[in-house]
Design a protein around this nucleic acid. Structure first.
Lengths: 111, 111
DNA sequence: TAACCAGTAAACCAATTGGTAAAGTAACTG
DNA sequence: CAGTTACTTTACCAATTGGTTTACTGGTTA
């Protein structure tokens, strides 16, 4: 139960970097090798590799070795978990404002 | 247009800490003073204040001074922005898998 | 006015981050 | 077998983070 929190920690942390979000946006369209992910950014291989490790540790992506290259693919479930936390908060918020709206209507009816 | 990214950076960064998510979960049910937010955690006031500043800088919450206390309230729009990015990615993913599904069905029809 | 209360500021600390450069290793290619 | 490619490791760096303690300010209350 605490584990779930830890996952959210690492998932949101992974999402907090524009490079990593760009990698996700790329991978969501299909798997890619490390080299191909590095290409769009003016960044060294080790730098991208660090980002990929952060993403992999968070469970947002998975990687596997194929010959001399490593291919990365998205793990949409973890992305959904982050989205779920947010939509859950929104649900509470909307429940609250609904209640406020209902209360306001009650007041309006009384006056 | 780059600004939007920066906002996502700070929003996701703010969400990456369990204390800050707990603060958000609390504030989404209604405004609260700094002291009340600090109470549930075994943490000093300055520590919570730092978290609140991070949350405020990200735009996820707003604060205002009232007498000697400062009351904090949620800003649901920013929360929605983070959710939007995620659901947008999911939409791409689902579009992709839909296309794969359609392709699989085409194959099935041919055989 | 004296005492208390809520927040703020400042200085400090260990750990983490996002990047680099340089030197390896393992898998293809000619 | 020699060379290139693609990743990997290591060591290093400056900046940021999440926390502390101590001291101070401004409001509230007895």
């Amino acid at each position: 139960m605490v584990n779930h929190m830890v996952n959210l920690d690492s998932a949101f942390h992974a999402l907090a970097d524009p490079t990593r979000r760009a990698v996700i946006a790329r991978l969501i369209k299909g798997p890619a090798a490390v080299k191909d992910l590095a290409a769009p950014f003016g960044m060294t291989l080790p730098a991208i590799l660090k980002h990929l490790r952060v993403l992999e540790a968070s469970g947002l992506i998975g990687t596997e070795k194929a010959g001399r290259s490593r291919i990365c693919r998205i793990n949409p479930e973890r992305l959904a978990q982050a989205e779920d936390w947010l939509s859950q908060q929104r649900a509470v918020w909307e429940g609250r404002t609904d209640r406020l709206t209902a209360y306001a209507e009650t007041l309006a009816r009384k006056t």
